[in-house]
Amino acid sequence: TRVETATETAWISLVTALHLVLGLSAVLGLLLLRWQFPAHYRRLRHALW
């Protein structure tokens, strides 16, 4: 049971790290898009909202 718990903890930390990385890359990508294509971003936002 001790090994299982350790594996579970490792998986949880791995998944958390993955989610953090994905979230950060998504935010960075959005910022980059907004910085590179302001007109396109505004049009996209206008279409979405």
Rank of each mutant, 00 (worst) to 15 (best):
P38W: 06
T5L: 02
R2M: 14
L22Y: 10
F37Q: 05
L22R: 03
L28E: 07
R34D: 00
R2S: 14
L30P: 01
R45C: 12
T7W: 03
G29K: 03
H40K: 13
A6Q: 02
L33G: 08
I12G: 03
E4T: 12
G23Y: 09
R34Y: 06
H40R: 06
L18R: 05
A6R: 14
L20P: 05
A39S: 12
L20D: 00
L24Y: 03
I12T: 08
W35C: 07
L31Y: 14
T16Q: 08
S13Y: 09
R2V: 14
V3Y: 01
L28R: 01
R45E: 04
L48Q: 03
Q36L: 11
V3I: 11
H46S: 10
G29V: 14
S25R: 07
L32R: 00
L28S: 02
W11S: 00
G29P: 00
L31M: 11
A17G: 07
S13F: 15
R34S: 06
V27Y: 12
V21Y: 04
L32W: 12
E4I: 07
L20F: 11
T16R: 07
S25E: 00
F37H: 14
W49S: 08
L44H: 02
L30H: 01
L31Q: 10
R42L: 09
L22S: 08
V21S: 12
E8T: 03
L14V: 02
Y41L: 14
A39K: 13
H46V: 08
L32I: 06
T1G: 05
W49G: 09
T7M: 12
T1D: 01
E4H: 08
L22I: 15
L32C: 06
T7P: 15
T5C: 06
A39V: 11
V27C: 10
E4A: 11
A6T: 10
W35P: 14
L31E: 00
A47R: 12
L24V: 05
W35A: 15
S25A: 14
T1M: 13
S13D: 06
H40V: 09
L31T: 11
P38T: 09
E8N: 02
A17P: 08
T1K: 08
L18K: 00
V27L: 10
A6N: 06
A47P: 04
V21Q: 02
L22W: 00
Y41R: 02
V15Y: 06
L32H: 04
A17D: 04
V27S: 07
W35Q: 15
G29T: 12
T5I: 01
A17F: 13
Q36N: 13
E4P: 00
Q36F: 00
W35R: 15
G23A: 13
S13E: 00
V21R: 03
H19K: 02
H19A: 15
L28K: 02
V27F: 12
L30W: 08
H19R: 03
R42D: 13
T9K: 13
V15C: 03
L44F: 11
Y41V: 15
L14Q: 04
A26S: 09
S25F: 01
W11N: 10
W11C: 00
R2F: 15
L30S: 06
V21A: 15
R43E: 10
H46Q: 06
F37S: 06
S25N: 10
F37M: 08
A39P: 03
Q36I: 13
W35D: 03
P38K: 12
L31F: 11
A10M: 05
